[in-house]
Computed example of a mutant assay.
Amino acid sequence: MTRDLTAAALRAAARQTLTRQPSVQAALNHMGFVQADPIRSPARAQDLTLMQRVPGYHAGDLERLYPTLDAEEDMIPNYGFVPRAVQALLHPREVASTRIEREHPELLAEVRNLLYERGELHPKDVIAALGARTASNYWGGQSSATTRALDALHYRGEARIVRRAGGVRVYGAAPHLNALRATPLTEDERLRGAVHLLTALYGPLPEASLGYLVSLSGYGFPHLRVELRTHLRRAVREELHGSKVDGVRYVWTPDYDPHAAPIPRGVRMVSPFDPLVWDRRRFTHLHGWTYRFEAYTPPAKRTMGYYALPVFHAEKAVGWANLKVDGGELQSEIGLAPGVRETATLRRGIDTELGRYRSFLGQNT
């Protein structure tokens, strides 16, 4: 189906991802995937994402509630949190021999046996039981071999994250994934579910961006990479809806109507990993300027700041904010995009949003 769309309508449609949900579980169910990142500036990405969707959410609520939620930590296009219905798309996951297995061929079995014996393992428990060992990591350095072995078991679906202790993952057995190995979803159900999830979460988005997302999702479906790309081509041809805007073809799921999006109100400051801004191609095309994530850029070369949060006013991205807590107080530096001026309405919206952040960080009495 092809219907004419404007960039303004697409901007409003994209911001529907910020629709408020009544609880953390409802937000996870609605989104299907929340990307995680360890940087706290002023809080972790998963907390920044959920505070925009769950009224009254406070930094750390996901970690605190996790043991009671229908939620798992897993990998789709990136590492994050999913409901178990989404995790069922990812497993059984057939994984080739990993670097840790090649360097320490006996270690995976030792850690597996210890996990089944203890039922729950903190990485320091494994080191205490098996001794400290090192292994090469993907950045050319060395890291804990036992922690890498735990990660490998988790990726294979032989372990799950049961909770976090001070931000550190604690591992346990994954009987629900053992059951899934016995009666998995069909390949078609898994592939169709994955393409639909990515399109619904990040869409409407350029067709090229969806292709990139599907390519990244090879990490979640390592033995179905080729099949996933094939299914995407079929979905674009037969299932997804789409339209061209200024020469760029956008796609979305059949149950989504980008024409019906109401014009959003107010100011929002979102995580660099939020679905609203994750696709930089869409961001630049719809908003006319380029947002940069510069946490890993040398300080002297940064133009926006260490962890700049994109700032939206109504449906438009109007700038960025760097937030940090100093002396128990939230400090902010606001940058405006080219051509944007700070009106009284924008300033009031920024102040209101900063007040929400103070509450989110537990600074309001």
Rank of each mutant, 00 (worst) to 15 (best):
Glu101Leu: 13
Leu361Cys: 03
Asn364Met: 06
Ser209Phe: 09
Gln21Phe: 06
Asp151Gly: 09
Thr49Asn: 08
His223Lys: 08
Tyr66Arg: 02
Pro83Val: 08
His30Lys: 14
Arg84Met: 12
Arg265Trp: 06
Leu115Val: 03
Ile350Gln: 00
Arg164Asp: 13
Glu103Phe: 06
Ala173Ser: 03
Gly172Arg: 00
Ala145Phe: 01
Arg237Tyr: 10
Trp139Phe: 09
Leu18Glu: 01
Gly327Tyr: 00
Met31Thr: 13
Arg44Glu: 01
Arg282His: 05
Ile100Lys: 09
Val311Met: 10
Arg169Leu: 07
Thr147Gly: 10
Arg53Ala: 01
Pro310Val: 09
Pro204His: 09
Gly211Phe: 11
Leu201Glu: 00
Arg302Cys: 11
Ile350Val: 13
Glu103Met: 05
Val248Gln: 15
Ile161Gln: 10
Val226Arg: 15
Gln25Glu: 06
Thr6Tyr: 02
Asp279Ser: 07
Pro254Gly: 02
Asn78Ile: 01
Thr146Asp: 08
Ile334Ala: 05
Gly56Trp: 03
Pro38Gln: 02
Arg15Cys: 07
Leu232Phe: 04
Gln363Pro: 04
Leu336Gly: 12
Arg225Phe: 08
His287Val: 08
Tyr212Arg: 15
Val162Pro: 15
Gln25Tyr: 10
Val126Glu: 13
Glu239Asn: 00
Asp37Glu: 07
Gly288Cys: 08
Thr183Phe: 11
Ala96Ser: 11
Gln25Ser: 08
Tyr79Ser: 13
Glu294Ser: 00
